[in-house]
Design a protein around this nucleic acid. Structure first.
Length: 297
DNA sequence: AACTTTTTCAACCGCTCCCCA
DNA sequence: GTGGGGAGCGGTTGAAAAAGT
């Protein structure tokens, strides 16, 4: 059993937000700032749960949210980030100014994972799908279950078991150990994503290459391209786990003018080489895990 | 035009982590 | 050291829209 819900559902509004609720929330946050989500609804005069308020603000009302279609550059970046980080949407979103984790998650599930499958790449592992029978395992199957109530109920009941089984069956990808990070040291209300017109993601294009080379290919691709340009995706004051990657990329490239790197981390190339060595050695899971962990100290 | 199926995405849920008393 | 509350995250749901028949 988990914790009790953060708020009593009795008497609270649920479902889509009305313009009036949006206005109340926006007005309140503009006046008092973000935070204190639990008590915010009451103080703002909203009949909503604090969680709901937070979500609405973070995913929809925040002034720094970028509207409109995801560009090809963003698209490409999401795929690359996902190959490195997996489903860590908030981290990925942190690299895409103005985009929310929810938006990226949705975009991945509705567009990118499908596209990768079509292209013969497993969206989970980013490896080439060898068995064509794996392909139909997409949302179509999921949708068919949607109208089946008994299955639906069972689905929820077996949720945990399923995820455990899936865990066991899944191909192990030695992604870094997930850690919780606070995306920005500044309060969000103060963080300004001033992305000028030159700030597109990299000029990289070679998705086909990625598919052929799988995870390793992606990693190499990351090294070779300008994905980690600190001036583009590293907000001032940000202290997330990818920070060192940004720095390392600059080191690899001989450093950049706008950023002084005094990191003790090995270069990204070295890290990658070491990683590949460990991958080649069979049954070296422990070493791999500790290696991955060491990257995030 | 009517109906069915599929897709999209905002919102919810359950869980974990972090912080503080 | 520990327990509780707040915040944040990722997975999932379901209503509405779009596409197909």
């Amino acid at each position: 059993m988990g914790r009790a819900p953060c708020c009593s559902k009795v008497g609270l509004h649920r479902g889509p937000w009305t313009p009036r609720e949006d206005a109340l929330l926006t007005k309140y946050i503009q006046a008092h700032g973000e935070g204190q989500w639990r008590s915010l609804p009451k103080r703002a005069g909203l009949l909503r749960c604090g969680k709901s308020c937070r979500l609405r603000w973070m995913n929809y009302l925040r002034p720094d949210i970028k509207r409109g279609n995801i560009t090809a550059e963003e698209d490409d970046l999401i795929i690359r980030m996902h190959s490195l980080l997996g489903n860590r949407w908030s981290l990925i979103a942190g690299r895409l100014p103005g985009r929310t984790d929810n938006e990226i998650k949705n975009y991945w599930n509705t567009h990118l994972s499908k596209r990768l499958r079509k292209q013969g790449t497993d969206p989970n592992t980013h490896k080439k799908l060898t068995d064509p029978e794996l392909k139909p395992q997409d949302q179509t199957t999921k949708r068919k279950n949607k109208n089946d109530n008994s299955k639906k109920k069972k689905k929820k009941q077996n949720k945990k078991d399923k995820s455990k089984n899936a865990e066991a069956e899944r191909t192990i990808v030695y992604l870094p150990k997930p850690i919780r990070v606070t995306a920005f040291s500044l309060p969000r209300s103060n963080s300004t994503f001033t992305l000028d017109s030159n700030n597109s993601a990299s000029g990289s294009t070679s998705q086909e290459k990625d598919q052929e080379e799988g995870f390793a290919g992606n990693c190499q691709e990351v090294n070779d391209n300008v994905l980690w340009r600190s001036s583009e995706y590293h907000n001032e004051g940000e202290n997330d786990e990818l920070g060192f990657l940004n720095e390392e990329h600059d080191l690899v490239n001989g450093g950049s003018d706008d950023m002084e790197c005094q990191s003790d981390f090995p270069t990204l190339e070295k890290v990658y080489e070491e990683y590949l060595q460990l991958l080649k050695t069979d049954g070296n899971q422990e070493e791999l895990e500790s290696f991955a962990e060491s990257l995030f100290v």
